[in-house]
Simulated scan of single mutants.
Amino acid sequence: MIETHDVALTSAEHDFRVRVYPAPDPGGAMLVWLHGGAFMFGTLDMPEADQVGRRLSERGITVVSVDYTLAPLGALDAFGPPPEESDVSPEQIRAEAAAAGPRARFPVPSLQTVAAFDWAVENAVRYAADPARVSLGGASAGANLATGAAMRLRDRARRDRGATSPRFLALVYPSLHDGILEPNDETAGILRDVPAGRLFTPEIRSVINRNYLPDGDDPHGYAFPGGHDLTSLPPTLIVNAERDSLRPSGEAFAAELARASVDVRVVRQHGAMHGYLSEIGAPAAERTLALLEQAISQA
C-alpha cells in the first residue's frame, strides 16, 4: 500500500496542494501529474489522478499529483444531463463541483503547474529521485496544463541557462488546440458510433475554452499550445483515445512537434473513449500505464 501525503503550496496568489506518491523502490524518476476535467472538474481522488499515482509509484516512479485551482463553473450547463446509464444526478454533479473551493481562470492553474514542477525538482532527492529526471504529464485538460507549463519552463531556461526543464512530457488524450479540429473521413466515421454524451462538440469545446481563457488572447501558447513555437520541448509521448473527438488535436500536435524537431511518439488506444484512465482495470488504461512507466523510467 502506497502511503501518500499532501503538501500545501501557493502560486499566483492562490493556495493549492500536491499529493506525493513515494515509490517504495525508487528508480530515480519522478512525474508531476495533472488530472483532467475541462479545467473546472476533477479531484486528486478520481482514478485518473489516484490510479496513475499509485500504479506508477509501485513501478518505481515517485508521482506528484497536482490539485490545481479549478476554473469557474460558467461552462457547466454546456455539458447537459449525464448519460442515461450514469448513476450520478445533475444535482450531485453541481454539488461536488461547488465543493471544490475558490476558483480561478488562466493563468492561475498554469502557473501552479510550474510551481509544482519546481517543488518536485527541489525535493526530488528526498524521494531518492534525480532532480534532472523530473517529467511532466497529464490527461485531457491536465495534458494541456502540463504542455503549457513545459513551454513556460522552456522559455525560462532560455533566459536562465541554469533553470531546470522537464525531462519528458507524457500526454494522454490531450486537448491542445483552442477548439475542435476537423476530423478526417476515417475518424469522422468512427465518431459516428460514439454516444453523444461522450463526445466534445465544437460548441461545447468553445464554451469550455472561453470559460478558461475568456478573451482568447494567448500569444505564447501557454493556454493552448497547438500552433505555437514548440522547439526545444522535451521528448514527448502522446496517447490518444481512438473514439475521441479530441484525437485530431493530439495527432496534429504530434506532427507539430515532429516539425519542430522534438522527439515524439504517438499511440492510439483502439476502441477507447475519452477519459478511459478513470476506468480501473480497463485494457486501454492498463496499456497506457505500461507505456507511461516505460517512457518515464527510461527518459
Rank of each mutant, 00 (worst) to 15 (best):
G101Q: 05
A254F: 09
S249D: 14
R154H: 03
A8H: 13
A29R: 03
H177Y: 15
P195I: 10
L56P: 03
F39L: 10
I238T: 09
L176G: 00
V267T: 07
V52Q: 11
D118V: 04
T187V: 13
G271T: 04
R59E: 14
D244N: 06
D178P: 08
A290H: 09
L111D: 14
R210S: 13
S261T: 13
V32N: 00
P81I: 08
R158Y: 07
A284K: 01
A255L: 15
E122Q: 08
P102Q: 10
Q92H: 10
V64C: 01
G148S: 02
L176S: 00
E85G: 09
P166A: 02
H5T: 13
A285E: 11
D217G: 11
T10I: 12
E85F: 12
Y68E: 03
S261I: 06
G275T: 01
H274D: 03
T201N: 07
S165M: 15
A129C: 15
E91F: 11
L44A: 05
I208Q: 04
A255S: 15
V63W: 00
S245L: 06
D15A: 14
A295M: 09
D244V: 01
I190F: 13
P26T: 07
L34M: 15
S165F: 12
G189I: 09
V134I: 12
R19K: 05
R19S: 03
S110G: 13
A260G: 04
F117N: 00
M151D: 01
S65A: 15
S232Q: 13
R192H: 12
G179A: 00
A295R: 10
D155K: 04
A128S: 14
A252N: 02
V239H: 01
A139Y: 14
P219F: 01
E203H: 08
L277Q: 03
V239A: 05
L171F: 04
R265N: 13
H177W: 08
V264M: 02
G271C: 04
A149F: 00
L169R: 02
V264A: 01
H35T: 04
A290W: 05
R192M: 12
M46H: 14
P174W: 00
N240G: 13
P131H: 09
A99R: 09
R156S: 11
G37S: 09
E84I: 10
L246E: 02
F200A: 08
A12C: 11
E96V: 14
R59S: 12
Q298C: 13
L70E: 02
V7Y: 03
R259C: 13
E84R: 11
S245W: 02
A260K: 02
I296N: 01
V172L: 07
E182I: 07
Q269V: 08
A241R: 05
F106Y: 15
V125H: 11
L145G: 00
A223F: 10
V172Q: 03
L191P: 08
D6Q: 14
L31P: 05
G53K: 05
A78D: 01
S278K: 02
Y127L: 14
G36D: 02
E293Q: 14
A254Q: 02
A285G: 06
P109E: 07
D185E: 15
